[in-house]
Amino acid sequence: MLRTRFTELLGIDHPVVQGGMQWVGRAPLAAAVSNAGGLGILTALTQPTPEDLRTEIRKTRELTSKPIGVNLTILPTISPVPYDEYVKVAVEEGITVIETAGANPEPYMPLFKEHGVKVVHKCTAVRHALKAEKVGVDAVSIDGFECAGHPGEDDIPGLVLIPAAADKLSIPFIASGGFGDGRGLAAALALGADGINMGSRFMATQEAPIHDKVKQAIVDGTELDTILNFRPLRNTVRVRKNGVSSEAVDILDKGGKFEDVQHLVAGARGRTVFEDGDIEAGQWTVGMVQGIINDVPSAADLVNRIVADAEEIITGRLAGLVQQSVNA
Rank of each mutant, 00 (worst) to 15 (best):
G19F: 12
G19I: 11
W23P: 05
R26Y: 00
R26A: 02
L29I: 00
A32H: 04
A32P: 09
V33I: 14
N35T: 08
G38N: 07
G38T: 06
G38P: 15
L39C: 03
G40M: 01
L42D: 02
T43E: 03
T43Q: 05
L45D: 01
R54A: 09
T55D: 14
T55S: 06
R58L: 13
R58I: 04
R58Q: 11
K66S: 07
V70T: 05
L72M: 06
T73M: 13
P76N: 01
T77M: 13
I78K: 13
P80Y: 01
P82F: 03
D84I: 04
E85R: 13
E85C: 05
E85N: 06
Y86N: 12
K88S: 14
K88D: 11
A90P: 04
A90F: 07
V91W: 10
V91D: 13
I95S: 03
T96Y: 10
T96F: 14
V97E: 00
E99G: 03
Y108R: 11
M109A: 08
P110F: 13
P110D: 12
F112D: 04
K113E: 09
C123A: 13
T124M: 15
T124G: 15
V126L: 07
R127L: 05
R127I: 06
R127A: 15
L130P: 01
A132M: 15
A132D: 14
